[in-house]
Simulated scan of single mutants.
Amino acid sequence: MICFSKLNLNIDVHLLQHELNDLLTGNNWMPHYNTADYTGNWHVLPLRTPGGNSDNPFADLFNHKNFENTALLNKLPETCRFLEKLDCEKLSVRLLNLRAGSVIKAHRDIELSFEHGEARLHVPIFTNPGVEFYVDEERIMMNEGDCWYINANIKHRVANNGIADRIHLVIDCKVNDWLTKLITEGRKKTVFLKKDPETSQQVIESLRMANTTHSIHLADQMEKELNNNQLIAKLLDFISEIGLQYQLEKINEDTFLPGLKLRDGVLIVDTEKLLYPGDILHEAGHLACMPAEIRMDMSDSLPNNDLNNGGEMMAIAWSYAASVHLDIDPHIVFHDKGYKGGGQSLVDNFTQGHFFGVPLLQWNGMTYPSGQEGSLSFPQMKNWTCKQNMYINHKAEK
């Protein structure tokens, strides 16, 4: 699921600002109709509505299909030119003014999302550094002239803590191939969409109670899928929590680990092709064990050199430590289809205290020195990501 995405559009915001500036003090603005969702002043200026009715502040995406420009929009040539460049069907178009000191409370616009075939785009026309726009509890820094898709189907909220009004051009669109390309190729946040485990578990229990050959088989399949989804979600949540980035995308080419690849320091995950969820930790380990300035350039395939050979050793030790931290069976990471058949040997060595790759993690400042008293020793970690560039320091010493 895509939470938000910054679209790569070239917008001359100064032309739009100049054209819309005269509207700021006009009397055509009307209070937003969802009065329970905000405090302060949040006003709407409709530009494209069902039937072109200028008095209709509603986006009203469900009940009307004949969206038309209002008389006001037809008098705004620069705004019209910009909208015409959006090569998709436009539904509602509005200017939304969140006055200084006003707050839009956390809310959802049901099924208004890319995944449901409709996309809401925000173009900041006038804004200020005091505006805080959160989607899925992550702040988005929207600058004047940007164009952002937001998934309005998940909770989002805005506070204008500045001293000036915040005015966005908000466009609701039908998703097509052109818009799909822009959204999926933009700078975005994705999350793994988990099925409701409680509901799934209830269905599984009902199937087992039916106690037929078919129902038991179906329950087994559902339980396997549920466990797999929960494991993937747990691993992806962990790598996000420690500051690594991932994106959920379709991977068309063959990759060394099915369903996974690295691109510019981001872990790309195709859950449909992912055969072994534990591989997520191994690939994340490659990213985690490198300092940020090296990590940001890491993409498939990693060159065969001393740096990456050492990184492979650290990634193995790191992923074992992560499996212990997350309380998952290390065989999920070191499965029999990986590590040239040596997964069991690695697990045996780690559980017996023969720590492969750990000296490099110690050198990197990520785990504790050998001989540390108490529990402060591997697989306990000091840092889950590399905080210092020892590689530059090491070269300088040489």
Rank of each mutant, 00 (worst) to 15 (best):
F126C: 11
G365L: 09
G52R: 12
R48P: 14
E138Q: 12
P50Q: 10
T271N: 09
L287W: 09
D270R: 15
K250C: 11
L23C: 02
L326P: 14
F378W: 06
T190D: 04
S5N: 15
D336T: 13
F238I: 02
M313L: 13
A36L: 06
C289N: 10
K337D: 08
Q352H: 12
I125Y: 04
D55F: 12
M1C: 03
H217E: 08
L61V: 10
N252Y: 11
D55W: 12
N227Y: 10
S102D: 08
I328E: 05
D87A: 13
N305Y: 00
E137G: 01
E115C: 05
A159H: 09
S323G: 10
D270C: 13
L86R: 10
F378S: 02
E293I: 15
Y149P: 05
I294A: 08
I239T: 02
H18L: 00
T212G: 00
D177Y: 10
L15K: 15
G40W: 07
M298R: 03
Q352I: 05
Y320F: 08
H18Q: 03
G145W: 07
A321P: 13
L218R: 13
H14G: 07
S323N: 11
G371N: 03
N28A: 12
F62Q: 11
I125T: 02
I216L: 13
E198W: 01
A59R: 04
L121C: 04
G365W: 09
Y246W: 07
D329L: 00
A106G: 11
A100Q: 04
A284D: 00
Y320M: 07
M1W: 00
H168P: 12
R99I: 03
S375P: 02
I332D: 07
G186L: 09
A210N: 07
H217A: 12
G343R: 09
F62M: 08
L72D: 04
P277N: 03
N153I: 07
M1Y: 05
E132R: 15
Y339L: 06
N227K: 14
S92L: 10
N227R: 14
